[in-house]
Amino acid sequence: MAKDLLTPKLVSELNRFCPGCGHGLIGKIIAQVLEERGVEDRAIQVYAVGCSCLISTVVQADSIQAQHGRAPAVASGVRRARPDAVVYTYQGDGDAAAIGLSESLYAAYRNENYTAIFVNNGVFGMTGGQMAPTTLEGQKTATSIYGRDTSVTGQPFKLAELVAQMPVAYVERCSLTDAKHIAQTKRAIGKAFDNQLAGKGYSFIEILSPCPTNWKMEPVDAYKRLQDIVAGEYKLGVLKDSEEE
């Protein structure tokens, strides 16, 4: 669809992400989804700490920067303070699955009526590519130089599966691997916002996204790894849909 190729008004021309990074693309999708529903002027995005914090320079919605990991709790306060706002969180995997796991799960547990965008690139990006809970077995990072030893660190962390155990509206895992998957990511994010607008409660969209810089790969190879390896561990699809239960 030609209109999808236009840059949303909500997106700034400035993009501070590394070449090949998925964050800018996700930001564009969020902006498209908000504009298509005509809710960009009442959107409040809550982001936290890490590369994801640069989202507010891409998506020019009203923005609150939470403490590391606490965006779900900050958004819970915003939800109650502004019943008419369209509220969403934007977090990376270190932020939401490591330091902020408690806040992530309790927001889902309360079925907060907001939309959670969770970007899984398998590393702590901004601090230089350290191991995250989501890092794959054997994956080399700055704090697992011989490859992640799951006998010591535990297995790759499946936050979406955990959230799907909660009484929430919707959970889906998507990927940015190619045009088809990007289109599906947009459909999922759209559904998550539609759920919020209909008052259905908490929707959680995990997006597998490449980090060429910290994976130490060319962008094209990083997208190939995303498809061939990462999506093998983190299965794509709908994990929970309260409408179908």
């Binding site: 609150i64 403490q67 709790a73 819970s76 109650r80």
Partner: peptide, 13 residues
Amino acid sequence: LSGISMVYGAAAC
């Protein structure tokens, strides 16, 4: 930790 974060969010509004 979570409680004060909610307070932060509501204060921001």
